[in-house]
Design a protein around this nucleic acid. Structure first.
Ligand SMILES: [Mn+2]
Ligand SMILES: [Mn+2]
Ligand SMILES: [Mn+2]
Ligand SMILES: [Mn+2]
Lengths: 242, 242
DNA sequence: GAGATTGTTTAGCCTATACTAATCCTATAA
DNA sequence: TTATAGGATTAGTATAGGCTAAACAATCTC
């Protein structure tokens, strides 16, 4: 059914398109506009590529109705995302890159490394579960830890939460958050969610409090801190981003 | 004089051409044929690219008379070779790649890493002077340790020599040499150089002896082991391969 | 239901980098 | 000095992946 030869040589362009669709829409369809905005390409270029991705069996696409990943396309996307997040981890933890620098470098390297390299790197790093931004690293078998976190500005006042991940898109926000220790793993108390302007006031473990504007608050993803109620160990997985 | 913008975006093709000329000819001119054989491209493709490399100021080229690197081209080549050899070192020493596997992976990665990555990797590895094959790693400033080694089959019978590098081109030979500990640093005694068939008989530090056919003997580069006669520390450098 | 708006596609074009086949040069050998 | 073999170039073509401008479709507003 699938041509295993064809699925070998995906160019870096193809890989970036497939990844973009996965990040934008998960299992749903992404529009031409969304993709073109994210990849900073003209709409015409995207239309053209969607046709070719369809030929390659990587997306379902009908003109004027966007594109969604096929199973093959989703598998490809996960492969690239795994590479990306492992490489980011390496850059930060081993080479001493800063939080804001890792993304750009990984964006290029993800297309150049082999599966061999990827798995050896995973081994070298001790098979990390999450990247420096708290995003789960897809496993070699193509499964992904489900992420149950929500945006900080959607928390409730008084709630005790833990930062699980941050939006990696904006380097200057990353920079600010990193400087103040607002990184994955940090526990926070939500003091106030002000509906007027969206400012969220929080207090960290050391009792230091911050007032974060909506853009910053929306780029912090948290999970409620609760006593575990599970009696049996269930680890839900998915293949799409949260 | 030089356009600093133009020298920024060298594609991976351009980088491979420049590196090939450096490896084939050093400061001299490489012929279209030589380049096409090394890169496994048609002669027509090479002719075409040489014209463009000339436009970019990377080579001196006159049709029918081969191409030699300009200063700018040589600097580019050294940058790529530095990346290549540092990456090879990382793959072998840190990720557990075997001798035969490192070259192919480095051949792709050398085009994807940034200067930032390269220098952080050099730091991470402790600024190694040579790669796993014994080839000197160009320094960040564009200088290169001069290599005074000669082919094992050009040694003299009875001579005491040390392996300084091995030809990295042939994976199966690398494999054989690696398996028998015939790696850079190993000291050997040359027992016989048989002119009839080119077989070289050597003895390693443990007294084990080998008879190497011409192809194998020619892919081992050695230096004579002598007492140092230098009274002042001179470290000769160059920008071209030996 | 008719425009107006906005997103999408088509048409036409461009560059980089390959290829083959045909032609042209150069150097060597007689 | 000239024929010739082999290397080099040209001519013509292909593919991937971009672009702009113009035409077209879907949706939103009145
Ligand atoms: Mn990318
Ligand atoms: Mn990340
Ligand atoms: Mn290469
Ligand atoms: Mn090497």
């Amino acid at each position: 059914m699938n041509d295993p030869i064809a699925s070998q040589h995906t160019s870096s362009s193809v890989e970036d398109y497939v990844k973009a669709i996965w990040e934008l829409a998960g299992a749903n369809a992404a529009s031409t506009k969304e993709i073109s905005k994210r990849l900073r390409l003209s709409g015409a270029s995207v239309t053209n590529m969607l046709g070719r991705l369809k030929e390659m069996g990587l997306v379902n696409y009908e003109r004027y109705h966007g594109a969604s990943l096929t199973e093959e396309g989703c598998a490809q996307a996960l492969r690239i995302v795994r590479r990306h997040r492992l490489i980011e981890s390496f850059l930060l933890e081993q080479l001493g890159y800063s939080w804001g620098e890792v993304h750009e470098e990984a964006e290029r390297l993800e297309h150049a490394v082999s599966d061999e390299f990827t798995e050896r790197l995973a081994e070298f790093l001790g098979h990390p579960a999450r990247d420096p931004h708290g995003d789960p690293i897809p496993r070699a078998d193509g499964t992904l830890e489900r992420d149950e976190s929500f945006r900080l500005d959607e928390a409730a006042a008084g709630q005790l939460v833990r930062i699980s991940r941050v939006n990696p898109e904006n380097p200057s926000m990353l920079n600010y958050l990193g400087k103040h220790g607002l990184v994955p793993g940090q526990t926070l108390t939500v003091n106030e969610i002000r509906t007027v302007d969206g400012v969220v006031t929080i207090e960290d473990e050391d009792g230091k409090s911050y007032s974060l504007g909506r853009p910053l608050a929306a780029s912090l993803f948290v999970q409620g801190v609760v006593e575990p109620t599970n009696t049996y160990p269930v680890e839900p997985t998915t293949t799409y981003p949260s």
